[in-house]
Amino acid sequence: MARWFENNGPDSDVVISSRVRLARNIRDYNFSLKLDEKSASDMIDKTMTELSGCAEFADYTGYNFKDLNEYQKHAMEERHTISRFLMEQKYAAGLVSPEEDVSVMINEEDHIRIQSFVSGRDMKSAYHKASSADDIIGRHVPYAYHEKYGYLTTCLSSVGTGMRASYMLHLPALSGTGQLAGIMSELGRFGLKMTSVFGEGSSSPGDIYRISNQTTLGLTEQELIDNLDNIAGQIIEQERLGRQQYMKLQQVAAEDAAYRSYGVLRYARKLSLKDALVLLSEFRMGLALGMFGDNMEKGYSVYQLMIGIQPYNLQLACNSKLELTELEVARATFIRNNLPQIV
């Protein structure tokens, strides 16, 4: 069965995915900051027992950190199945849907984090999936909920709806022309924030960015999503304009860059993560602009390669610990085996 990142959804030329996360706490346990190890284990076990018994989660895979090695945990984090925060927890457990599009994390910064992914731009479906899981869980464990403040969270920055909705966007044109810094600095006034998915600070190999709501209280989930979607829509349009400009003014250079990137991806014998992400970004934009014509497999998701080449997923696929050079060789091989052919 195809996982969410192996498909393309609406507006996939720019939008990779729509994600919703809901933060929930269980009423009777202290929150993570004041939860001792014994109570945490107790909370995890009881919650897992409750949820594993739900018919609605019957086809989900349950996991417990007690049974996972470091590679498995890191690989899940690289595929966005679990958060970085959860990965670094000593005790944690959770449930994952067969397509890895819905994930329930237990003992995150909040007791329960429900997460859903949909390919492309479709926040309505993403919210619906997360909210349905939330309804089920809320019937089995009593949530910490306040008449005035709504869903109570460890951080004041998530209280109310407890919802963080985000789009993952591919923005090579805006980032390449230096327009992104300006856009990022303006997002705060709309209660939104943009961060880079791969890399830190100003460097963002792969040009993949996440835009999400920062405020969670006072507006309804629908209003928060509408705000995010409207602003994201603006950014998507600007990215498309930027790409069209690039094609209009420098068509030869643009095609050359996309085909050169494809060539290196196809024939390189070792690749660093950063180089591979940069090349895949060029290739992805070329594909979206139709440079590879109709012969290139339609609806191919380049993002699955961006996930597959992450260090822990590669090591998990090879079933062994790899040194840096071995990792770079494995990365080039993985890309070669999975890159679509130009006929």
């Binding site: 306040h146 005035k148 969670t216 006072g218």
Partner: peptide, 8 residues
């Protein structure tokens, strides 16, 4: 948040 009352 611009507000202190949950409406969601």
């Amino acid at each position: 948040h611009g507000s202190n009352i949950h409406t969601g």
